[in-house]
Design a protein around this nucleic acid. Structure first.
Length: 292
DNA sequence: CCAGGTCAAGGGAGT
DNA sequence: ACTCCCTTGACCTGG
C-alpha cells in the first residue's frame, strides 16, 4: 500500500505547480506569460517529486493547473515549449526511476453525462489536455496512472445520465480512455459505487472508491462491500482509493486538515490518496499516528 | 507588503 | 437570488 497526497506540497513553500492567472491577465499578457508560468510549474514539479522520494512518498496526484488556460492553445505554441517538454520528460523519468505512481484528477467541470454539447466538448478537451501532459511524462497508458473524474450531473434520471456518460466516453481519444477512472459521489442524489458498476460493465474502466464520499452516500452497501466492488474492477492494477475526513458536522462534505482515524483496508492491497487541507504534512502526521 | 475582494468552467444543495 | 462545495486557493488591486 502506498499513501499519497494531492497537488500541493506545504513542506516546500516556494515550490508550487499552481501558478495561474485570471482571464483579464491572459488577454493582456498572452502566451509568453502563460509559458513562463508553465515552465516554473513543471520545474517545481520536479522538485516535488524529488521531495516525495526523500520522504518515502510514492503516490502523488498532479495539479490540473500546471498550464494556465491550457484549453486556449496547444502546448507547442508556448515560447518555452522545448524546455517545458524536456522538464516534463525529466519529471516522468524521475517518477519511473523511483517507482512513483502519478495520477490526475480533472475538475468538476468535466461532465461526460451532460446533455449540453458544449459542456461535453469542453470536457473532451480538458481530458485530452491531461493525457497530453501524461504522455510527455511517459506515464503508462493504464489506470495505474489514472485520470479520475466523477460522472457529473444526474438531470433527474440517473440511468439516462449513465447511458449518456458511456456514449460520450466513446468520443475520447485512446490515451484518455485507457487511463480514465470513475469515482463515487458524496451526495445522496448522485452516483454510488454500485451505480458506477454500470459504467464499468459498459466501458471496462475501473472504479475509484472514496471512503468519505461513501459514508455520505452508501447506496445501502457497507464500506467493505463497496470497497470490494470497486477493487474487483481493477484487474492486475493496484486499486486507487481516496480517504478524507469531514471538516465538521456543519460542513460534512468539506475536508478536514488531517486524517486521524486509522484507515481500514480490509486486508486489500490498495493505494490511497489522502485528501485533506494539510497535504503532505497530514500524510507524515498520519504515518506518525499509525506507524504505516 | 498585506489584507481583502475577486475569480472560467457544471451541477446540486443549502440559505 | 446567492453562496458554498467539489479535484486544488491563487490573483490582483488598493491601501
Amino acid at each position: 500500500m502506498e499513501l499519497g497526497y494531492a497537488c500541493i506540497n506545504l513542506s516546500l513553500p516556494d515550490k508550487t505547480t499552481n501558478r495561474t492567472m485570471r482571464l483579464a491577465t491572459f488577454k493582456k499578457q498572452g502566451l509568453p506569460y502563460a509559458s513562463k508560468l508553465a515552465l516554473a510549474n513543471v520545474q517545481d514539479l520536479v522538485s516535488i517529486i524529488e521531495w516525495n522520494e526523500q520522504n518515502n512518498i510514492r503516490l502523488f496526484r498532479m495539479s490540473s493547473n500546471i498550464f494556465p488556460w491550457q484549453s486556449a492553445y496547444e502546448l507547442e505554441e508556448l515560447p518555452d515549449y522545448l524546455e517545458i517538454r524536456a522538464t516534463l520528460e525529466k519529471a516522468g523519468a524521475l517518477a519511473a526511476k523511483y517507482g512513483h505512481r502519478i495520477t490526475t484528477h480533472p475538475g468538476p467541470y468535466n461532465v461526460l453525462s451532460s446533455p449540453n454539447k458544449n459542456v461535453v466538448d469542453r470536457t473532451l478537451r480538458d481530458l485530452r489536455d491531461h493525457a497530453i501532459i501524461m504522455d510527455i511524462m511517459g506515464l503508462s497508458n493504464t489506470p495505474y496512472n489514472k485520470i479520475n473524474i466523477h460522472v457529473g450531473g444526474v438531470y433527474g434520471d440517473k440511468t439516462k445520465a449513465l447511458e449518456t456518460w458511456c456514449r460520450n466516453f466513446e468520443l475520447l481519444p485512446a490515451n484518455v480512455k485507457s487511463r480514465l477512472t470513475i469515482e463515487n459521489d458524496d451526495k445522496l442524489s448522485a452516483f454510488t459505487t454500485q451505480d458506477l458498476l454500470y459504467i464499468h460493465k459498459n466501458t471496462g474502466i475501473p472504479i475509484v472508491f472514496d471512503y468519505h464520499h461513501h459514508s455520505l452516500n452508501t447506496g445501502g452497501l457497507s464500506e467493505q462491500e463497496a470497497l470490494e466492488i470497486a477493487c474487483s474492477t481493477w484487474g492486475d492494477i493496484t486499486p486507487a482509493c481516496h480517504v478524507s475526513e469531514p471538516r465538521d458536522t456543519q460542513n460534512p462534505r468539506a475536508h478536514h486538515d488531517y486524517i486521524l482515524k486509522k484507515i481500514n483496508t480490509y486486508n486489500k492491497n490498495i493505494d490511497i490518496v489522502l485528501e485533506c487541507k494539510k497535504k503532505d504534512v497530514a500524510l507524515l502526521h498520519y504515518r506518525s499516528l499509525h506507524n504505516s
